[in-house]
Amino acid sequence: MLTIEIQKENGYDILLLSGEVDASNSVILDEAITNLVNDGSKAILVDAAGLEYISSAGLGVFMSYLEDFQEKNIGLKIYSLSERVFEVFKILGLDQLMHIYPDKESALLS
């Protein structure tokens, strides 16, 4: 099960992810990001502290926005990934394509 909470803080839209992102619910993540983009967000933080698992479908959601974010000058930063989930990003080389930080403070300072 996936739950997403959206908060606004200091000009950032923060997505708080909890649970698991897989093929059956990755559309929920996609819709949340699409809504932020359509609402004019320029800076999105993803708080992944509660993210227990992410499948290739979930990673695909993030990957599908990389080019759009670059073209629209939208910043995306992911932080507080568990070691297990971070390894999935790392194995696929996504740690080289996305801005991933150990915690919220590091993400805000960069």
Rank of each mutant, 00 (worst) to 15 (best):
E71R: 13
H99L: 10
R84F: 02
G50W: 00
K42A: 15
F62S: 12
M63F: 06
Y65I: 04
G93K: 08
E83G: 00
N25Y: 10
K90R: 14
G50H: 01
M63S: 11
E83R: 03
G60R: 15
A57N: 03
G50M: 01
I33N: 06
T34L: 09
L59W: 09
Y53G: 13
I44K: 10
F69C: 06
L59M: 09
I54H: 09
D47Q: 10
E71M: 02
E52Q: 15
L59N: 10
D39E: 14
I28Q: 14
I28Y: 11
G93Q: 10
L66G: 00
I54Y: 09
I91R: 07
Y79L: 02
V46T: 07
L76Y: 09
K72A: 11
S41C: 15
V88N: 08
V61C: 09
I33E: 10
N73D: 12
I44S: 06
L81E: 01
E87M: 08
S26V: 01
V61I: 15
S41F: 14
L81R: 00
K72G: 01
K90C: 00
R84D: 08
E87A: 14
K42I: 13
S55R: 12
H99W: 03
L97E: 10
E83C: 00
F62H: 13
L66D: 03
S64C: 04
Y101A: 03
G75W: 02
V27L: 08
Q70H: 14
S80V: 11
V85T: 08
V88I: 15
L66C: 01
V37L: 07
L45M: 13
I78A: 03
F86D: 06
A49Q: 15
A48M: 02
V61L: 08
G93F: 07
A48Q: 09
L66E: 05
I44G: 09
T34M: 05
A48D: 12
K42Q: 15
Y53A: 11
I78C: 03
D30P: 08
E52W: 04
A32Y: 10
S82C: 01
Q96I: 00
L76K: 07
S64N: 12
L76F: 12
L81Y: 02
Y101G: 08
A49M: 09
S82F: 01
I74V: 10
E83F: 00
L92D: 05
N38E: 15
V85Q: 02
Y101S: 06
E67S: 15
I74C: 05
E67D: 15
S55K: 13
P102A: 08
V37H: 12
G58R: 11
F62T: 14
D47R: 06
L94W: 08
E83V: 02
V37E: 12
I28P: 01
G40E: 07
I28A: 06
V37C: 02
D95A: 05
A43D: 10
N35Q: 14
A57Q: 04
A43N: 14
Q96D: 04
E71S: 04
S82Q: 12
V46D: 09
L97V: 05
D95F: 06
Y79W: 07
G60A: 07
G40D: 10
